[in-house]
Design a binder for these strands. Structure first.
Lengths: 247, 247
DNA sequence: TCAATAGTGTCTGTGAGACATTATTTG
DNA sequence: CAAATAATGTCTCACAGACACTATTGA
């Protein structure tokens, strides 16, 4: 209560306060084969040895939490830093319960990241790197990571409604069917195809039709036109999910 | 990179990491006389001596950031802890730039609080307590607090659209005119009175009409019916501000 | 009286939900 | 052929914006 406070005069003494460790935890989502997946690591040490956990690590002395999150994301996915730098990363919130880590006082800044379907993250040659795990398929995670992951999932679902975030799950060129599948997968509902198409195409800047009439098939039916993500970042009006959200 | 990491085997050593201080900063808003106000303190020490800053303080060893924010809110407003406990407090985001405080490494978890028009915060008898300052009336704040305050303002404006948050700015019993003034003050736009009334009254659970026909005047015109905040927390569909939001 | 606010009612345009229908591919 | 997906079109209802109008107070 000395440094920023206005009640205790005199200087400040950093050593007077028990040190906090500051970490970042990442909830990295992708859509694979119509299923939502999360990047997880298996813990090799106590506590929670053998359990799954969110990837993460310490914030270094000269970096911000956002920089630490981006660095960890690049390390865990095995992507080049430049590629990882283009991915969507969003600060979720900070978890600071005094007992969230039994070893010491750790405050963790959680981030959510959305990536298109990437190759299996096995770049560095290190063992025990992160793996894609289907959302909800693995039991409780270590520490309070189950809680963080649930918060991240809620946030992502909510942001799909009023932002163009869904394109972050898609490759650079995608069909409207793939984009719709992102919504359906994350929200867990079926959307009316014609209405979805109308909504997306009439929202200025959401997607851009690719000029050359290339078409790509997603399996059986008629080939679909390709689109790119547009310049817009928010949706007006929003694309609300069918039954009112907000549990 | 030892504690949570899976690459460096062996135990962990807290002393190996430069200690971080963790603080909370509060952006406390209220509406007074149709103007948005923020709770600020004048700094009595270097750096930024004499500048205005957001109230805040250190997270103590055995409390979470949210508990610290609530404690600071009670201290700065001079309210009883029980009263402050009922106020709306929301974690905004965490600010962690390595150079945000020139003295040491401080990571700050920012909170936004919305309170009805309170008496001037002069409870404790201490000097240099927080004061209500009209939003935008004071020059740049100390540290990165100008940035935090701008983020808080954006967040509050956005949350008015899809939550029942506006009632947090009102006393327990309020008129629809007062509620509308909250929106107009924060959004900085004039709203159509009949349409606002229709929207609020047809949103289930937003407000509850008080039975006895008590009425209260807000100055000149016809007395208005009184309402209480309803049980709902979110608005479906949202109450969007006139010109598309999202700067 | 006027000015200001509360409250009611009406019209209209936008947009979303619920379809039907056609087109184009694979098995 | 059937099945699956893409794409277009149509109808309807809900709801928000833009008013007009009445009611009730204070100056």
């Amino acid at each position: 209560m000395a440094i920023r406070g206005r009640r205790v005069p005199g200087g400040y003494d950093p050593a007077a306060f028990e040190p906090f460790a500051v970490t970042v935890d990442l909830a990295v989502f992708t859509v694979r084969l119509g299923r939502l997946h999360v990047l997880l690591v298996e813990r090799g040490e106590e506590p929670y040895r053998g359990d799954w956990a969110l990837p993460g690590g310490f914030v270094r002395p000269r970096e911000s939490a956002g920089q630490a999150a981006r660095r960890e994301l690049a390390e865990e996915t095995g992507l080049l830093a430049r590629t990882a730098g283009a991915l969507h990363l969003e600060q979720l919130r900070t978890y600071s319960d005094p007992d969230r880590d039994p070893r010491m006082r750790v405050v963790s800044v959680a981030y959510a990241a959305l990536v298109p379907d990437l190759p299996e993250p096995r770049g560095g040659g290190d063992a025990a790197r992160a793996q894609w795990v289907e959302f909800g398929a693995r039991g409780p995670l270590a520490f309070d990571h189950e809680h963080i992951l649930a918060d991240a999932y809620d946030r992502v679902g909510a942001k799909l409604e009023y932002t163009c975030l869904a394109t972050a799950f898609c490759p650079p060129e995608f069909t409207l069917g793939e984009l719709r599948q992102v919504y359906e997968t994350i929200w867990g509902v079926a959307l009316d195809r014609p209405n979805f198409r109308r909504k997306v195409l009439t929202t200025p800047g959401f997607v851009q039709a690719l000029e050359g009439p290339p078409r790509r098939t997603g399996g059986r039916g008629k080939p679909a036109a390709l689109y790119r993500a547009g310049p817009a970042t928010t949706l007006h009006p929003p694309l609300l999910r069918p039954e009112g959200r907000n549990a």
